[in-house]
């Protein structure tokens, strides 16, 4: 076991290695490890945030849905109401229209009846005149009795 220069050589090598490790090996590795630690921490934080955001979103969505449901119910109710109103209105309109039509038809019928009666009276009167003239052709002088006949016609017209 000779103690010799190897001792010094090893001492210098050792100090050099420690220096080299501190300068060139330790920092990149430790930094990379630290960076990853931060990444993981950030990732976990982000995941938590995401979870929270999801919870909030779910709550909001539920609220929106319930709101929409009430709104829909309201809309349906009002639509029903409106429908009923429309139907009622239509019914009223139809009834009044019917009455109007019936009334106008009655008027028309009355007018027809009146016209027919008028014509009938004219015909009856002319027939009466014809008949009377036929009977009185020989006895009545048309000129002498014209006034009488005219009164008769007038009377017929009036009745």
């Amino acid at each position: 076991m000779n103690i010799n220069l190897t001792l010094i050589g090893q001492t210098i090598s050792f100090l050099l290695f420690v220096w080299f490790c501190k300068k060139f090996v330790w920092p990149p590795m430790v930094n990379a490890m630290q960076e990853r630690q931060n990444q993981i921490a950030d990732g976990l934080a982000a995941a938590e945030k995401g979870q929270e955001a999801q919870n909030v979103a779910e709550k909001e969505a539920a609220e929106l849905i319930s709101k929409a449901k009430t709104q829909a119910a309201e809309i349906i109710a009002s639509a029903e109401k409106r429908g009923n109103a429309v139907v009622d209105e239509a019914k009223t309109t139809a009834t009044s229209e019917k009455e109007r039509i019936v009334a106008s038809a009655l008027t028309e019928v009355e007018q027809e009846v009146h016209t027919a009666r008028e014509q009938l009276r004219i015909q009856v009167s002319s027939i009466a005149v014809a008949a009377a003239s036929k009977i009185a052709d020989k006895e009545i002088d048309e000129a002498a009795h014209a006034g009488l006949i005219e009164d008769l016609v007038k009377q017929l017209k009036a009745s």
Binding site: I3, T6, T11, S13, L15
Partner: peptide
């Protein structure tokens, strides 16, 4: 085996001593 050399072991110890 360098560490079976007394110079190596004591050399590192000397560095520690320094």
């Amino acid at each position: 085996v360098p560490s079976t050399d007394v110079n190596v072991a004591l050399g590192m110890a000397l560095a520690v001593f320094i």
